[in-house]
Simulated assay, not measured.
Amino acid sequence: MSINLSKGQRIDLTKSNPALKKVIIGLGWDTNKYSGGHDFDLDASAFLTGENGKVSNDHDFVFYNNLEGGNSSVIHTGDNRTGEGDGDDEEIKIEFDKIPTHVHKIGITVTIHDALQRQQNFGQVSNAYVRVVNEETNEEVLRYDLGEEFSVETALVVCEIYRHDREWKFNAIGSGFQGGLAALCKNYGLQVD
Protein backbone atom coordinates (compact mmCIF):
# COMPACT_ATOMS: atom_id res chain seq x y z
CA MET A 1 0.00 0.00 0.00
CA SER A 2 1.35 3.40 -1.01
CA ILE A 3 1.73 6.28 1.45
CA ASN A 4 0.87 9.84 0.36
CA LEU A 5 3.21 12.48 1.76
CA SER A 6 2.90 16.23 2.23
CA LYS A 7 5.63 18.84 1.82
CA GLY A 8 8.19 18.56 4.62
CA GLN A 9 7.27 15.01 5.65
CA ARG A 10 10.02 12.45 6.13
CA ILE A 11 9.59 8.72 6.00
CA ASP A 12 11.81 5.70 6.51
CA LEU A 13 12.42 3.61 3.39
CA THR A 14 14.68 0.70 4.36
CA LYS A 15 14.50 0.26 8.16
CA SER A 16 10.87 -0.85 8.23
CA ASN A 17 11.25 -2.54 4.83
CA PRO A 18 14.65 -4.31 4.75
CA ALA A 19 13.72 -6.10 1.51
CA LEU A 20 13.68 -2.74 -0.30
CA LYS A 21 16.99 -2.85 -2.18
CA LYS A 22 16.23 -1.24 -5.57
CA VAL A 23 13.80 1.60 -6.18
CA ILE A 24 12.55 3.57 -9.13
CA ILE A 25 12.02 7.27 -8.51
CA GLY A 26 9.24 8.10 -10.96
CA LEU A 27 8.56 11.75 -11.78
CA GLY A 28 5.52 12.97 -13.68
CA TRP A 29 3.86 16.22 -14.70
CA ASP A 30 1.41 17.82 -17.11
CA THR A 31 1.77 21.19 -18.80
CA ASN A 32 -1.06 23.71 -18.91
CA LYS A 33 -2.05 24.58 -22.46
CA TYR A 34 -0.89 28.04 -23.44
CA SER A 35 0.06 29.77 -26.68
CA GLY A 36 3.78 30.21 -26.09
CA GLY A 37 4.73 28.31 -29.23
CA HIS A 38 7.26 25.99 -27.54
CA ASP A 39 7.04 22.48 -26.14
CA PHE A 40 7.92 21.99 -22.50
CA ASP A 41 11.01 19.85 -21.91
CA LEU A 42 11.29 19.04 -18.21
CA ASP A 43 14.41 17.22 -17.03
CA ALA A 44 14.94 15.12 -13.91
CA SER A 45 18.38 15.07 -12.28
CA ALA A 46 20.00 13.55 -9.20
CA PHE A 47 22.72 15.21 -7.12
CA LEU A 48 24.70 12.70 -5.01
CA THR A 49 26.12 14.70 -2.12
CA GLY A 50 28.32 14.21 0.90
CA GLU A 51 27.38 15.13 4.46
CA ASN A 52 28.02 18.80 3.60
CA GLY A 53 25.22 18.76 0.99
CA LYS A 54 27.68 19.29 -1.88
CA VAL A 55 28.57 17.08 -4.84
CA SER A 56 32.24 16.07 -4.69
CA ASN A 57 32.76 15.47 -8.44
CA ASP A 58 30.94 15.69 -11.78
CA HIS A 59 30.29 11.91 -11.81
CA ASP A 60 27.94 12.37 -8.83
CA PHE A 61 25.62 14.57 -10.91
CA VAL A 62 23.22 12.33 -12.84
CA PHE A 63 21.19 13.93 -15.65
CA TYR A 64 20.39 13.55 -19.38
CA ASN A 65 24.09 13.97 -20.37
CA ASN A 66 25.46 11.71 -17.60
CA LEU A 67 23.01 8.85 -17.10
CA GLU A 68 24.94 6.99 -14.35
CA GLY A 69 26.63 7.99 -11.12
CA GLY A 70 27.77 6.72 -7.77
CA ASN A 71 29.37 3.51 -9.10
CA SER A 72 26.22 2.87 -11.18
CA SER A 73 24.06 2.96 -8.03
CA VAL A 74 21.97 5.79 -9.56
CA ILE A 75 20.81 5.47 -13.18
CA HIS A 76 18.73 7.94 -15.17
CA THR A 77 16.61 6.00 -17.70
CA GLY A 78 16.68 8.76 -20.33
CA ASP A 79 15.28 12.14 -21.35
CA ASN A 80 11.58 12.50 -22.18
CA ARG A 81 11.42 15.71 -24.20
CA THR A 82 7.64 16.17 -24.31
CA GLY A 83 6.10 14.72 -21.13
CA GLU A 84 3.24 13.35 -23.23
CA GLY A 85 1.19 10.38 -22.08
CA ASP A 86 0.18 8.92 -18.74
CA GLY A 87 2.44 7.61 -16.00
CA ASP A 88 5.99 8.60 -15.13
CA ASP A 89 7.63 11.05 -17.52
CA GLU A 90 11.19 10.36 -16.33
CA GLU A 91 12.67 7.78 -13.98
CA ILE A 92 15.80 7.46 -11.87
CA LYS A 93 16.75 4.04 -10.52
CA ILE A 94 18.59 3.70 -7.21
CA GLU A 95 20.24 0.57 -5.82
CA PHE A 96 20.86 1.21 -2.11
CA ASP A 97 23.56 -1.45 -1.56
CA LYS A 98 25.74 0.02 -4.35
CA ILE A 99 25.69 3.65 -3.17
CA PRO A 100 29.26 4.69 -2.28
CA THR A 101 29.94 5.50 1.37
CA HIS A 102 30.80 9.15 0.56
CA VAL A 103 27.21 9.72 -0.65
CA HIS A 104 24.88 10.71 2.19
CA LYS A 105 22.06 12.35 0.26
CA ILE A 106 20.54 12.15 -3.21
CA GLY A 107 18.71 15.31 -4.24
CA ILE A 108 16.07 14.61 -6.90
CA THR A 109 15.34 17.70 -9.00
CA VAL A 110 13.36 18.79 -12.05
CA THR A 111 14.23 21.71 -14.31
CA ILE A 112 12.66 23.27 -17.41
CA HIS A 113 15.08 23.13 -20.36
CA ASP A 114 15.68 26.58 -21.91
CA ALA A 115 13.02 28.04 -19.58
CA LEU A 116 14.15 31.67 -19.92
CA GLN A 117 14.40 31.60 -23.72
CA ARG A 118 10.99 29.90 -23.98
CA GLN A 119 9.46 32.10 -21.24
CA GLN A 120 8.36 29.03 -19.28
CA ASN A 121 8.10 28.34 -15.54
CA PHE A 122 6.55 25.88 -13.11
CA GLY A 123 3.42 28.02 -12.86
CA GLN A 124 2.59 26.49 -16.26
CA VAL A 125 3.06 22.93 -14.96
CA SER A 126 0.39 20.97 -13.13
CA ASN A 127 -0.09 17.54 -11.53
CA ALA A 128 3.62 17.21 -10.72
CA TYR A 129 4.50 14.26 -8.52
CA VAL A 130 7.30 11.98 -7.41
CA ARG A 131 6.78 8.38 -6.41
CA VAL A 132 9.01 5.63 -5.10
CA VAL A 133 8.43 2.17 -6.57
CA ASN A 134 10.00 -1.08 -5.39
CA GLU A 135 11.76 -2.16 -8.61
CA GLU A 136 11.64 -5.87 -7.74
CA THR A 137 7.87 -6.01 -7.03
CA ASN A 138 6.69 -2.99 -9.08
CA GLU A 139 4.77 -1.84 -5.97
CA GLU A 140 4.44 1.88 -5.26
CA VAL A 141 5.89 2.56 -1.81
CA LEU A 142 5.08 6.27 -1.53
CA ARG A 143 3.92 9.27 -3.49
CA TYR A 144 4.34 13.02 -3.04
CA ASP A 145 2.11 15.34 -5.10
CA LEU A 146 3.77 18.73 -5.35
CA GLY A 147 0.63 20.86 -5.70
CA GLU A 148 0.30 24.10 -7.62
CA GLU A 149 2.29 26.48 -5.42
CA PHE A 150 4.98 27.51 -7.93
CA SER A 151 4.76 30.53 -10.20
CA VAL A 152 8.08 31.91 -11.49
CA GLU A 153 10.40 29.03 -10.57
CA THR A 154 12.31 27.20 -13.31
CA ALA A 155 13.86 24.49 -11.13
CA LEU A 156 12.60 22.36 -8.23
CA VAL A 157 14.21 20.21 -5.58
CA VAL A 158 11.45 17.61 -5.46
CA CYS A 159 12.76 15.32 -2.72
CA GLU A 160 15.85 13.92 -1.05
CA ILE A 161 16.77 10.35 -0.32
CA TYR A 162 19.19 10.44 2.60
CA ARG A 163 21.26 8.11 4.76
CA HIS A 164 20.54 8.02 8.51
CA ASP A 165 22.13 5.41 10.80
CA ARG A 166 22.88 3.08 7.87
CA GLU A 167 19.25 3.26 6.70
CA TRP A 168 17.70 5.29 3.86
CA LYS A 169 14.90 7.80 4.30
CA PHE A 170 12.77 10.02 2.04
CA ASN A 171 12.20 13.75 2.56
CA ALA A 172 9.42 15.53 0.59
CA ILE A 173 11.08 18.89 -0.19
CA GLY A 174 9.12 20.73 -2.92
CA SER A 175 11.40 23.79 -2.98
CA GLY A 176 11.57 26.07 -6.03
CA PHE A 177 14.49 27.99 -7.55
CA GLN A 178 14.84 30.62 -10.23
CA GLY A 179 17.79 30.21 -12.57
CA GLY A 180 17.14 26.67 -13.84
CA LEU A 181 19.75 23.94 -13.79
CA ALA A 182 22.62 26.39 -13.25
CA ALA A 183 21.05 27.56 -9.96
CA LEU A 184 20.64 23.96 -8.79
CA CYS A 185 24.23 23.08 -9.70
CA LYS A 186 25.49 26.06 -7.72
CA ASN A 187 23.27 25.07 -4.77
CA TYR A 188 24.85 21.60 -4.78
CA GLY A 189 28.43 22.90 -5.14
CA LEU A 190 29.07 22.34 -8.86
CA GLN A 191 30.73 24.93 -11.06
CA VAL A 192 28.78 25.79 -14.22
CA ASP A 193 30.47 27.20 -17.31
Rank of each mutant, 00 (worst) to 15 (best):
L20I: 14
D43K: 03
K33D: 11
G8W: 05
Q9I: 08
T14Q: 10
K7Y: 00
I11H: 08
S6Q: 06
K7S: 07
S6T: 13
Y34T: 01
K33W: 11
P18N: 09
G26A: 14
D30Q: 06
D12I: 01
L27N: 11
K22E: 14
A19T: 15
K7C: 04
L20K: 11
T14I: 06
Q9M: 13
H38R: 02
D39I: 11
P18Y: 09
P18T: 07
K7H: 09
I11M: 15
N32R: 14
D41Q: 05
K22Q: 14
D41R: 00
L42P: 01
H38A: 12
T14K: 02
N17V: 09
W29N: 03
G36R: 00
Q9G: 09
T31C: 05
L42R: 05
D12A: 07
S16C: 13
L27W: 05
D41V: 02
K21S: 12
K15F: 10
I24T: 12
K21V: 12
D39N: 13
G26M: 12
G28T: 02
I11L: 09
T14Y: 05
L27R: 07
K22Y: 13
S6F: 08
T31G: 00
K21C: 07
W29D: 04
S16R: 14
N32I: 15
A44M: 03
R10D: 04
D12E: 04
K7E: 06
A19K: 14
G37F: 01
L27F: 10
P18E: 10
T31A: 06
D43Y: 04
K15D: 12
L20R: 12
A44G: 14
D12K: 03
S6W: 07
P18H: 10
K15N: 13
Y34F: 05
I25L: 11
H38E: 09
G36Q: 05
G37M: 00
G8M: 07
Q9R: 09
N32S: 06
L20M: 10
Y34C: 01
F40S: 02
G37R: 02
V23G: 00
G28M: 04
L42W: 01
R10Q: 12
Y34N: 13
Y34A: 04
T31P: 00
A44E: 11
G37W: 01
A19P: 06
K15A: 15
S6L: 03
L42Q: 03
D41L: 01
N32Y: 10
L27A: 13
A19I: 08
D30S: 13
L27D: 06
K22R: 15
G37H: 00
T14L: 09
K33L: 11
T31V: 11
A19V: 14
